[in-house]
Design a binder for these strands. Structure first.
Lengths: 225, 225
DNA sequence: CCTAATCTTTAGAAAAACTTTACGCCAGTT
DNA sequence: AACTGGCGTAAAGTTTTTCTAAAGATTAGG
């Protein structure tokens, strides 16, 4: 499953360079030129990593970062032409996870992206809840020790929920991660497949203990009943 | 509570510089010149962060890192005189969290240390008042340690009040933020849901201590009773 | 102290959201 | 060409949430 990276960069040439680079490595990208619209997007949909150019036109990048950190822990890599020590220290203390100065090499940026994504994905081999186990390496799911066959869609949804265990995922987050951005606004797709997952994984599908509905919002996978 | 930093560096002058710098910032330090002894130490005692000089005499730093990552997730900041892109990419892909090239500024190194320590301490923002806690990441609310179920509207109102704690929010501000601009002028919507919130969160809903009414204006959430 | 406006609380109606099942289509397989 | 499994669609039935309305309490102002 591809990770999603948000790019906040107001220079069109640079934005295009970054998105092309990221897409060539199979990342999903969401690009924004304005701080406001990026923040708005993040409130609606979580991403796995953020690339932030400090030199934004509409607001100060440092200030943007500070604001974001009030409520969001997503890793942020700052990209900036400014090389002074003070800029770096300030950005890192405002919550940046890494700082890259222009000009930078594409390979180094990609490596730093990988390093920052890695620490998010808790290097857990097997995900568990109740008697259910999901092994992402073997792409296998079992319940009470017996293998359970999941379709690709079901598996993708379950893995997404497990990667964000105990958090609520909105219908649109699930749709865009599993089906693709073009499918947002079709919550019924998710519902049908959630019903299937409950049939296969819950003791009492009609009264689910782990795969919980959050009416009006989305779904949450609870690790504890 | 001071964090402990392990320094693996075989140049005595550099090691001394680093430990002095770290101690001046109240970090505990454990210094090693040999990869083997550092590994040995780590098996016995966990540290919060590792500073690794790639130019070790007794073994290759890249290889040391690779070995460590087999069983240990502690953040590693690599320090190296080698500036080539290939070295950086390799170290980051072997599990380094950050890469600093010599010569570096002390302030920048300290800032990067802070940034890397920060992401370990899962310092997720949580809003609190009385015994009530709201975790915006998990979208969960608890009271006296027990989960409290809030509907979407109730949750949205509470989060809005918490984001503007101790300030008065007018009915119309709440309506436009939670329902949308088209709903201003219907204060009764807010009232019914505020009553619900009090039922769920206040000890004596009829005499609220936190969710206060400002007659004629709106509501205010007081952080202190 | 009286009045009008504002507010709390409850209950039930209405709306929205959700679950579940069934069916037809499509792609890949036999 | 028929079979199969997986998916999207639709519809019926259920649950949850929200809105409405009304009765009683509180507040602000004269």
């Amino acid at each position: 499953m591809a990770e999603t990276i948000l790019v906040l960069e107001d220079d069109p040439a640079m934005q295009s360079f970054l998105t092309t680079l990221l897409k060539s490595k199979q990342y999903n990208t969401h690009s924004f030129a304005h701080g406001i619209s990026a923040l708005q997007h993040l409130t609606e949909q979580a991403v796995d990593l953020i690339l932030l150019d400090l030199g934004l036109a509409d607001m100060d990048g440092q200030h943007w970062l500070q604001q974001l950190r009030g409520w969001c822990d997503t890793p942020v890599i700052v990209i900036s032409a400014r090389q002074t020590e003070q800029d770096k220290v300030q950005a890192l203390d405002h919550g940046a996870n890494d700082y890259v100065t222009k000009p930078f090499s594409a390979a180094e940026l990609l490596a730093r992206i990988r390093a920052n994504l890695r620490q998010t994905n808790v290097q857990q081999q097997v995900f568990c809840f109740g008697t259910v186990r999901l092994d992402p390496v073997q792409r296998k799911v079992s319940r009470d020790g017996a293998d359970v066959h999941l379709t690709k869609t079901e598996y993708d949804i379950l893995l997404l929920l497990l990667r964000h265990a105990d958090k609520v995922l909105t219908h649109n987050q699930i749709l865009s991660q599993v089906w693709g951005d073009a499918y947002t606004g079709r919550p019924e797709y998710v519902r049908v497949h959630m019903a299937q997952l409950r049939q296969k994984l819950e003791d009492t599908p009609a009264a689910p203990v782990y795969l919980k509905t959050e009416p009006g919002v989305g779904y949450r996978l609870k690790l504890q009943p």
